[in-house]
Simulated scan of single mutants.
Amino acid sequence: MRLPSLRRPTPSFFISVAALVVAAGGTSYAAATIGTLDVRDGSLRSVDVRDGSLRSVDLRDGGVRSVDIADGTLKRRDFRGGALPAGPRGPQGPQGEQGPAGASRWVLIGRDGTIQAQSGGFDIVASYPVLPNTAAEGQPSNALRANGNVYIDAGEDLADNAIVATVVLQNTIEQDAAGSPGAGNTNGRAPGADANPEFSGEITVSRCAFPGSTGIPTNCAPAGAQNLESFVVSPRLSDGSVTTDQNRKAFYVILAGTSPAGR
């Protein structure tokens, strides 16, 4: 008996069988065989993939919408700063403890030796005083021995403080002596030494009764100044000359260090 001959399967036959297998396997086959490397970046939406198989580069911009995200699944860290609206303001908390006192105080002394402004706690003891003459008979009067100085009470023991003083620029006040090279000039550019007292000057400051390295206390002559709470400031012309009513210096003083509360 002659058996029928079998024809060799054609390529189209194999393709049909493969299509049938894929159709029977459904999405499970596709999920098992298609990975992120098989997907063009930016081509997918979140609904196109199963949980856990999605990478950021696989999504196209704008592909994820609110409906794609389960309610309550995002956390604050998932949002950039400022993206979430602020909630209502909570009630005010209890009053905290008072902080330490400020580390510095300051005072502005005018040309006349009076306090023009201050942060608090300063009083004038004496400004450019004329004192009783204590010179021996026949000797020149020493009544002006403190006349170039201003004595200030800081209202506290100055043992733990530093004192800094600086003259104030005064370019609206003529301070040159009549007939001097800088007379009539307040712009600070008159030629010659000490020709611009409005822009120049020297100043020194010291605690009263301050022993220093010699152990001999700084002497503050006016009554009420020789104590641990007072200091003396001596503004001078830039050549060291004592100032007069014509060319007194306004100056700032800064007291730095430990100050009592409220000062």
Rank of each mutant, 00 (worst) to 15 (best):
L20P: 01
L74Y: 05
A159C: 04
A261N: 07
I109K: 09
Q98C: 05
G212R: 07
G240T: 01
P260S: 14
A117V: 02
T218E: 14
T114R: 13
L20E: 08
D71F: 07
A18I: 06
F122L: 06
S127Y: 04
S28T: 04
R189A: 15
A195Q: 06
I69M: 03
G81I: 10
R263H: 15
T166W: 12
R60M: 09
L144H: 10
F251Q: 06
A195H: 03
R76V: 11
I216R: 11
D112H: 07
G148P: 01
E202H: 05
Y252M: 14
G42T: 03
I203W: 01
L37E: 08
S230L: 03
V67P: 12
P260W: 05
Q246V: 13
N149V: 04
S56E: 09
V168P: 00
G224H: 03
G26P: 03
A103Q: 12
G99Q: 02
I69W: 00
V233S: 01
N171M: 06
R263P: 14
D51A: 14
L158T: 03
E198Q: 15
P191D: 11
S200C: 07
G25V: 04
I15R: 15
T243Q: 13
Q116T: 13
G110A: 15
G42H: 01
R80K: 13
P9N: 06
F14W: 12
S238R: 09
S46F: 09
L54W: 09
S28I: 02
T166C: 15
G240K: 01
D112Y: 03
G102E: 10
G93W: 09
T114L: 08
L44S: 14
G192T: 05
V49M: 10
R76H: 04
V205K: 04
L131R: 00
G188S: 07
N187R: 09
V22S: 12
R8T: 08
V150H: 02
D123N: 14
A30I: 12
F122Q: 01
W106N: 07
R189G: 08
G257R: 11
P222N: 14
Q98R: 13
A261E: 09
L37R: 06
D160C: 05
D160I: 01
E137Q: 11
Q175S: 07
I203Q: 01
L44Y: 10
P11N: 15
G262T: 08
N187L: 10
S43Q: 14
G87I: 07
I152N: 01
L44E: 12
G113T: 00
A256N: 10
G148C: 09
S53F: 11
F210V: 00
P132V: 07
E202A: 04
A117H: 07
N149F: 01
A23Q: 08
A250Q: 06
R55L: 13
G182N: 07
Q170I: 08
D112R: 12
A195C: 06
L158D: 00
G52V: 08
A221S: 12
G26F: 04
G182P: 05
G201P: 01
L131N: 05
T243G: 13
R2M: 11
S12T: 13
V49P: 00
R76T: 10
V47H: 13
S180Q: 08
S28G: 01
G113Y: 00
D51P: 15
G102S: 10
S56A: 15
N142W: 03
